[in-house]
C-alpha cells in the first residue's frame, strides 16, 4: 500500500510538471494551430539559463528565476517573429518541420555552451523529507506541486477573466472573427509563444531542482504529446488532467511492470496509452471534435 501511495505521489508531482509544459503546448496549438515539437527544448533551455544565472554568475535564486522568465519572454517573442510568422498559412508539414528545426538549433545552443553532462542544480529547498502519514516526501516535490497548481490556477483565471486571455480564446475559436472585432492576431500569437516559453522554463527549473539538468530534458517535449492528446489538443483543463493522469500512469506502470519485463516501461507506457486513446477517442477528453464537410 505504501509502495502504491509513493508511486501515486511521485506520479502527481511529475504529472503537475507535465501539465505545466502541456499548458504551453496546448496554448500554442489552440491559438495558432501549430504543433510545437520544440516544447521540450524550451523546457531545457529555460532550465539551463536559470542554472547559468545561479551557478555561473552567482545570482541569488529568486533573482535568477525572474531573469530566466525575462529571457524566456524575449525568446518566445523572437521565435514567433523570426521562425513562425513567415510560415502562417503553409501546410502543416512545413510548420511541424520548422519547429523540429528550431528544436535542433536550441539543442545545439545548449550543447555548445554547456556540453552534454548532467549538471546538478544547487540545493534551493531543504533536503529533509516531510512525512505524509508513513510516506516520506521530499520538500522540493511539495514546492513544485504547489507552484504548478498555483500557475495552473492563475492561467485558468487569466483565460476566464482578463481581456488578453479572452482575446486569445477568441483567436483560437475563429481568427477571422477575432480580426474583425479588432483583436491583433499577430500579437496573440506572440503572446502564446511567450506564455509557452515562460511556463516551459518554470517546468524546466522544477525538473532541474528535482533531478539536475542534462540534454535529455528535451525528451519532455515528447512526453507532453500523450498528455495533450489525452486531455484534448486544444483544451486547457485537459492539459492539467492529462498531465496528472499521465504522470501517475507512468509511475504506476513503471513501479509494477518493470520487475516483470526488466525495466524501462516508464518511457514507453505513455505512448502505448497514447495509441489507445488515438484509436478510441482521438480528440481526447475535452478536445473539440473537428467535423469535416466537403
Amino acid at each position: 500500500m505504501d509502495f502504491f501511495l509513493l508511486l501515486l505521489v511521485n506520479g502527481l508531482v511529475v504529472g503537475s510538471i507535465y501539465a505545466l509544459v502541456a499548458l504551453g503546448f496546448v496554448l500554442i496549438y489552440k491559438s495558432s494551430d501549430v504543433l510545437n515539437l520544440a516544447q521540450g527544448e524550451l523546457v531545457m533551455l529555460g532550465a539551463y539559463i536559470c542554472f547559468a544565472f545561479v551557478v555561473q554568475y552567482n545570482i541569488p535564486f529568486f533573482a535568477a528565476f525572474v531573469l530566466t522568465l525575462v529571457f524566456s519572454t524575449i525568446l518566445g517573442l523572437s521565435v514567433e517573429r523570426v521562425v513562425l510568422r513567415p510560415l502562417i498559412g503553409q501546410p502543416i508539414i512545413s510548420v511541424i518541420m520548422v519547429t523540429i528545426g528550431l528544436s535542433s538549433v536550441l539543442r545545439a545552443l545548449v550543447q555548445a555552451f554547456w556540453g552534454t553532462d548532467t549538471r546538478p542544480f544547487p540545493t534551493i529547498v531543504s533536503e529533509a523529507p516531510v512525512m505524509l502519514g508513513s510516506i516520506p516526501i521530499s520538500q522540493v516535490y511539495i514546492y513544485s506541486l504547489a507552484v504548478s497548481l498555483v500557475l495552473l490556477a492563475i492561467f485558468t483565471a487569466f483565460f476566464r477573466y482578463s481581456k488578453t486571455g479572452i482575446a486569445m480564446r477568441a483567436v483560437a475559436d475563429d481568427q477571422q472573427a477575432a480580426l474583425s472585432m479588432g483583436i491583433s492576431v499577430r500579437r496573440i500569437f506572440a503572446m502564446a509563444w511567450i506564455i509557452a516559453a515562460v511556463v516551459s522554463a518554470i517546468g524546466g527549473i522544477m525538473v532541474g531542482l528535482i533531478n539536475g539538468i542534462n540534454i535529455s530534458l528535451s525528451y519532455m517535449g515528447l512526453k507532453v504529446l500523450p498528455v495533450a492528446i489525452l486531455g484534448g489538443l486544444d483544451s486547457i483543463p485537459g492539459a492539467v488532467i492529462g498531465g496528472l493522469a499521465i504522470g501517475v500512469l507512468e509511475n504506476l506502470s513503471g513501479g509494477y511492470i518493470d520487475p516483470i519485463v526488466g525495466g524501462g516501461v516508464k518511457e514507453v507506457a505513455p505512448f502505448v496509452f497514447l495509441v489507445f486513446i488515438l484509436m478510441i477517442k482521438p480528440y481526447g477528453l475535452f478536445g473539440k471534435e473537428i467535423i469535416e464537410r466537403v
Binding site: 521562425v83 503553409q90 512545413s94 528545426g101 535542433s104 536550441l106 539543442r107 555548445a112 556540453g115
Partner: peptide, 24 residues
C-alpha cells in the same frame, strides 16, 4: 571538436528553417 556535434545539429536546424521559409 567538442562543439562539432553542436555545430552539426545547429546547422541541420538552420538549414531546415531557411529552406522552409525561403524555398519550401
Amino acid at each position: 571538436t567538442q562543439v562539432f556535434n553542436a555545430l552539426r545539429e545547429g546547422i541541420f536546424g538552420i538549414v531546415i528553417i531557411v529552406f522552409l521559409i525561403y524555398e519550401p
